[in-house]
Design a protein around this nucleic acid. Sequence first.
DNA 1: AAATATCTTGCACATGGGTGCAAAAGCGAT
DNA 2: ATCGCTTTTGCACCCATGTGCAAGATATTT
Lengths: 338, 338
Amino acid sequence: MTQNPPPLSAEKATIEDVARAAGVSRWTVARAFKTNASVSSKTRAKVLGAAKEIGYLPDLQAASLGANQSNLVALLVDDFKNPHKLLLIEQVSQTLRDHGWDSLLINTGGAQDTNAALLTASQRRVDAAILLGVHFNDAVLDTAVGAERVKKLIVFARSSKHPRTLSICVDDAAAMAIVADHVLAQGYQRPLFLAGPQTGSAHLHRQETFVQQWFEATGDAPHSLEVPVYDSALSYTEISKYLAESKSYPDVIVCENDALALGAMDAIRLSAGLSVPDDIAVTGFDDVPQAGFAQYQLTTYQQPIKEMAEHLVKLLRGEAQAKDRYDFSGTLIERSST
Amino acid sequence: MTQNPPPLSAEKATIEDVARAAGVSRWTVARAFKTNASVSSKTRAKVLGAAKEIGYLPDLQAASLGANQSNLVALLVDDFKNPHKLLLIEQVSQTLRDHGWDSLLINTGGAQDTNAALLTASQRRVDAAILLGVHFNDAVLDTAVGAERVKKLIVFARSSKHPRTLSICVDDAAAMAIVADHVLAQGYQRPLFLAGPQTGSAHLHRQETFVQQWFEATGDAPHSLEVPVYDSALSYTEISKYLAESKSYPDVIVCENDALALGAMDAIRLSAGLSVPDDIAVTGFDDVPQAGFAQYQLTTYQQPIKEMAEHLVKLLRGEAQAKDRYDFSGTLIERSST
DNA sequence: AAATATCTTGCACATGGGTGCAAAAGCGAT
DNA sequence: ATCGCTTTTGCACCCATGTGCAAGATATTT
C-alpha cells in the first residue's frame, strides 16, 4: 500500500494578500479585477502584477454572496438513455463556459424529483436553471415551490408554455412538417408514428404535427405507437412486437427522435428480418452521431444546438428579448434510411 | 409577442428570519439544522416548524464560505464522443447527489485546458475534482498549478500514478487479461489491437496487457492500430482503410473500448463486406448500451460503475483508505461478436 | 493661484452562515 | 435552599468578496 497524497498546498491567497503586496486597499484590488472600474491604469498594472505573483484568483463563491449574481447555472437532466443528451450537455456546458458561466449538473433521473432539484439549484444561488429533459412539464413546474426560487427557468430543446419559463427550441411543428413533406414526397403510404413519453404540456409537438399533416395530405390518420422512455432498447422491443403481431407492416416509421429510430431500425432488420429502406423506411429527429454511422444512415432533422446555446447565453445576459419561446430552424439531413 | 415572465418571487428567507419567527437566536437555528448538534428536541421542533412555515432553506454557497467544505465536486470531462461518458456522468452525478454532493460539470473538451478547468474548480471551492477523461495525464497534472489548489484530485475509470491523485478504476491489466483469455480460448489466431489515444502515464494498460498476454501465449506479437480519439466514426474510417489496404485480414479485432469496437464492426460489415464474427470477431470494453443492441451484440467488459461511484463517495468522506489506486473488477459480457 | 470638475481610492456596511467558547439554564444530590 | 455538573443557548469573530458613498488626489478652468 502506498502512502497518502502530499498535504494540501499553501492556503489560497485572498484579495487582502494582494492588497498588502501591492500596497493598496483591498477595494482597489477588486477594482483592478473588474472591467470598467475606475482605477488608474498604473495602479491596475501594479495590482495585477502582484496578484499574478502570489497566484491570486478571486473566490467565486464569496463573490456571489455579495453580488446578486453567481455566474453559475444549473443544468437539470433527467434522461440519460438518449444519446442526444450528451450532445446537448456538451454544447451547452461548453458555450456557457466560453462565456464565463459554470454549470451545476443536477441529475434528476433517479428520484425524478424536479422540485428537489430546483430547490438545490436555488440553494446554490444559480442565475438560472436550464431544463434539459422530458419530465419538466408545466404541471410539475406549477407545483414545484423550487421553481419560484430560481431566478430564471429556461427550457432547452423543448417548448413550454409555463409563465415562469423561457423556451429555446426549434419550431417543432415546422420541423416535423418538413419531415412529413419529405415522407410524402418519397411516396410512402402507410406510416407509423413512433412517439416517446407524452409529458403534459411541456412536450414536443411532433406527433400531432405529423398526424395532422398526414391527414391533410392524404385523408388518412396514421397509426401511432408510444413508448414511455426515449430508449433505443425499448423501441427495439416495441417495434419488434408490433411487427410480429400485425399482419401488414408500415412502409415508413416516423420516429419522434433518433433514440427511438435507431432501435426501430434494428428491430426491422434483425427482429423482423426486413430491410431498411426497401421494406420499411425510417426517419428520426436530432441527428445524433450514430445516425450518421454506416450501419444506420438515418434520415433525420438536425437542430442548431450551437446557435441555440448562443441564444441561451444572450438570454442569461438579458440581451435577448424575453419571449416565451424562441424558435430556431434546423436542417433535414437526408440519408439512405428513406 | 408575449410578455415577460412574472417578477421573481419574494426574497429567500434567511436564517435570521427563521430565528425571529421561532423566537431564538440564529445560532440555535443553525443547530436545529445540524445533526448531532446540542439542541433540545423541543427547540429543534419549534425551529424546524418555523423554517418550514416561511420556506427557509440554508444557502449552500454562504455555508461553504464559513465551513471548510462546500459539498460541491467538480466533474472534469473532456471526451464527449464516447457514449460511455454518458454512463459515467449519469452514475457519478446521481450517486454524489444521493449522498449530498452537487456536481460542477466542467467541459474541458474545447480548449482542452485542464489547468484552467482546475483553477475554475478551485475558485468554486470544490471539495474535490473528479477527472473523467482521457487527457488528464500525469504530465499535464504536473504542470497544472490548478492541480495544487484543489483539495482532492480523483481520477475515475482510469488510473494515474500522479502523487496528488487518487484513482478509482477496474484493474485494467486483470480485465484485459480476461478478454485476452477469452480471445485465446475461442481459438482466434490473428488479432489486431485497436487502441485509442495513448496519453502519457494516466492511461489505460489495455494495449500493453493484451500484447504481452498474447505474446506469452503464442509467441507472436499482435498487430496494433491507434486512433487519436475514442470516436466510432474515426474507428470506422481507420479500420475501413486498414482492411482495404492489407492483403490478409485479422480474425479478431480487440478494441480498447466499445466506442472503437462499434465503429470497427460497422467497418468490417459495411465497408469491407465481411461478417462478424465469422470473418472477423470483435471485442470491446465498457459495455455501453449500444453494445447490447441487436445490431452489435458486442462481447465486452463491463465495469462496476455503480460500485466505483459508491467508493468515490467513501473517498470524499475520508472513510476509505487513501490508496493511490483502488482496483475493482468487472464482468466479461460474452455476446455474439466473438 | 484659487476655484472647480474629475478621477482615484478608502471605508462602513452587507451578504448568509460556521466555529468555539462563555454564559445561562436545567437538574439531581446534599 | 445550595452546590456542582450537564445541557442548552448566545455571542464575538471569521469566511472572501460586493456596493455605494465620501474623502483624497489630480487635472482643468478662470
